[in-house]
Every structure is written in C-alpha cells, then in structure tokens.
Design a protein around this nucleic acid. Structure first.
Lengths: 126, 126, 126, 126
DNA sequence: GTGGTCTAGACCACT
DNA sequence: GTGGTCTAGACCACC
C-alpha cells in the first residue's frame, strides 16, 4: 500500500495518514486482521516523527478501525462497528459537497456516475 | 436565512460560516445578486468577532461565490464559474466519505438515495 | 482547586491530571461552565510539559467532561451526557475493588459507610 | 474457573490475569489452599507467554494472595493479611469511581444496590 | 522489539 | 494569547 503525504498541506499529517489508512481498509489494500507497520517503521518510511504516527494509530484505534495487540502491534480490526450516528454526520458532509458541486455546474447524473465509480473500488465486506 | 455556529466544534468559525453561506446559495436561501449583511451586522448577530466574518467574506470572494463592491457591500455573484479542476478535488473528498460509509456498512443504493434527497433541495440554476 | 501529581508514580501524568479534574468536577471544585487554566499556565504551575496537559484536555474533551471554545479556551461542559454503557464498566471496576476489600476483611456495612462518606462530598447536579 | 483475557485491551495481560484470580479467590472459585495450575500449563491454556504468567504469580505472591512452594507449585494462601493501609488505597479508587458515577447521573441508592449485589457473591471467609 | 509516555522547544491557525 | 501540530530524542512497560 502506497502512502503519500503533503508535508506543506493544510491537513495535519496525522489526519492525512489516518484518511489514507481508512481508504486502504475500504479498498482492500489493507485486509481485516492484516498487520500494520510498526510505529517506528512507518515513521521512518514516511520521514516523519514517531509521535505523529503514534497519534494516527491512537485515533484509528479510538474510532474502531484498528486494534492494538500488546504482543504483535497494530492490525486492522476483524470487524468494524456499524456506528449508528454516522449517518447524520455523513449527510452533513454530503450536503456541503453536493452544494458545491451543484453551484459548479455538475448535474446529478454526473455526480452519481462518479460515486458509482468510487463505490466499485470499495471491496470491504462485513 | 438561519445560520448556527458550533462555538465548541472542531471546524473553524470562519469555515462553518463559509460553508453555511455556500449551502444557502445552492439551496436558494441566497439568490444570485442578493445582498449579504454587512460584516459588522453579521458579526453582531452571530456574536462573533468582525475579523472572523471578514475572513469568511474574503474567502468566499476569492472562491468566486460572492463579489464585494466597496459602495454597496457584498452580494452573491451573478454567475459562478464552473471551475474545471473542482472535479478532482471533489473526487478526493468523495473517496474518503464513501470509504467510511462502506466500512460502516452502508450499501450503494442507500447512499445514492441520500444523495438524491440532498440534490432535490438544490435549486441553483446556471 | 489543588492538584498534586506523583511524578514517579506508575499512573501516567496525563491520567492523574485527568482523574483529579474529574473529581474536581464531581465535588464542585470546578463548576459547570467554569473556565479551566490555559494549557501553558497549568503546565507551568505543575512543572510539566504543555503536551502532557494538552493530552489531558483532549482526553477530557473526548470523554465529554469539558468543551473547548476556540475563543476562550477550555471550560467544564455545561451538561455531561449520561453515558449508557458506563454502567457495565462501573460494575467491572467495582467487582474488583469489592473482591479485594472482602479478602482484606472489610465487611459490607463498613464498605457502605465509606461509600456514603465519599458520596456526600459529590455536589454535581444534573 | 474460567479466565478470559482481552488481548487488545488497555490493561496489561499480567494485570488482567491477576485481577481475575483475585476475584476467583473472593467469590470462591478458588478456595484457600487450593492449588493453582503451573505457570507452564496456564500459559499454554491461555495462549500467552510463560513470562507473563510468571509475573502474575510473583505479583500475587508479593501481595499475599498466594504462596509458592518450590515442590508443590503455587496455591492460594491459607490466610490473607488484613492489610491495614489497604483502606487508604481503597478510598482513593472509590473516590474516582464514585465521582464518575455521580457525573454520569447515577444516584447513591442505585450505586448501593449494585454494591450489594456484588457483595452477595463474595464468599471468602476469614 | 512493540507501543506508550514525557520533555523541550518550535511554529501555526484561529479569534 | 488560545489550543493544535510537529520534531528529535529519550526512557519505560509489556511481552
């Protein structure tokens, strides 16, 4: 799995990293139960501080995407909870994105096509 | 048009405000050419600093959503560019949102339904 | 409100700090809406690093005990959710404590007396 | 006696194990003088490292819960000290637990009821 | 060898 | 002036 960070972007590094790992899980780049790199290893590979990776892992753990086994390090959660209130949050995010798309002249069918393309790459199974 | 801010949220105030105005434009709460409140007025109504509102207006102007006339204040742009490179940015945002939705157990048809509902409220016409 | 940390204890500093603030809220040393010291100030007062205080505040925020207002810093939450699954967690903790008390020869009435004394100092109102 | 460990929990394995054995002693699952499994055996049963079990046994011995005889292995102490300074430690733990319970909206009578239920399962006799 | 914690010191975004 | 982020480097607890 390839990870690329924008060092000078506006999104915090730990959040960029978190996002890419989440996408990796959804698209199958990281299978359930698969072991993640160690904090040190990943930090070195990306050229960033171990604390930053540490924060990412803590966040992912707290959100249920990964579990941290004291014996073998971090791995993708075998099952991920179907967070109930996630739906409301999702709608809020979508509303803004769709508002911008509508203003920029994108029609609904084009939007749905893009969604379909993205969805077709999601291989995560419950 | 009603605007509500979460003072203790994670999103910066100026960005929350910007987002709500964009949604207002897309859903018809703010018509093209419609005059916006003065910086001063809006700041007072919302109980926030004028600098914050100022930053929001500057951002909206820079992104083409509003125009600022020194004499008559700010108003919604008569026409908004169909920014071409907006598409790439959109896909990036959607990818993350859809990844999270997929992991949380939402299937594509449910997702499309939600999109349709939101789209049906968008009244902005080019 | 007085806070004292064991620098060489086994409990992490950020957790000791978190615990004392929680107790402060429950016993009225910190009223709802009351402003907490700034991260820098508290770090200096306690002679520890700002990052450590920062972590404490993040944790308290995440657990709903405090809110962080971008304008004025951190303050005690006006209302704190009555976390539903807290009950199970509580029972687990109590079971261990009571087991140890029973083995050490403490009878139930004595235990209840101690609980009553502690409870009488809790002034937090919903 | 059944022991179950959370490999991905926050509590160290040796401590989880220690806690469950203490509860076992208090609730009668392990009688005074009863022999405990060998380090080797227990480690294998639980699928953990022998060092971990070893550490647990050392801890339990040091705290007076078990005695270790080189010839016959470990067994539950025939009598356990009524450690006097245990009381202070107990109060500290209870204070935090009760503070959290109070904030989360639990009233004293409900709390006392839960304590009674737990106490009724404690069978350890001095 | 793993993650967890802490420090000292720095810079940035937000208001 | 607030909290948020990041770094470099260190030590510790756990297994």
């Amino acid at each position: 799995m390839i990870i690329s960070l924008e060092l000078d972007g506006e999104t915090p590094l730990y959040e960029q990293l978190r996002n890419q790992i989440v996408i990796g899980i959804a698209t199958g780049g990281l299978a359930p139960q698969e072991k993640l790199p160690t904090v040190r290893q990943l930090a070195e590979d990306l050229g960033i501080n171990t604390m930053t990776v540490n924060k990412t892992y803590s966040l992912l753990k707290q959100q249920g995407y990964i579990v941290i086994d004291r014996r073998h390090g971090a791995k993708v959660s075998p099952t991920i909870d179907e967070s109930p209130n996630h739906s409301a949050e999702l709608e809020g995010q979508l509303q803004l994105i769709i508002a911008q798309a509508a203003i920029r002249g994108m029609d609904q069918s084009r939007f749905q096509t893009i969604c379909s393309q993205i969805f077709s790459k999601m291989t995560y199974q419950h």
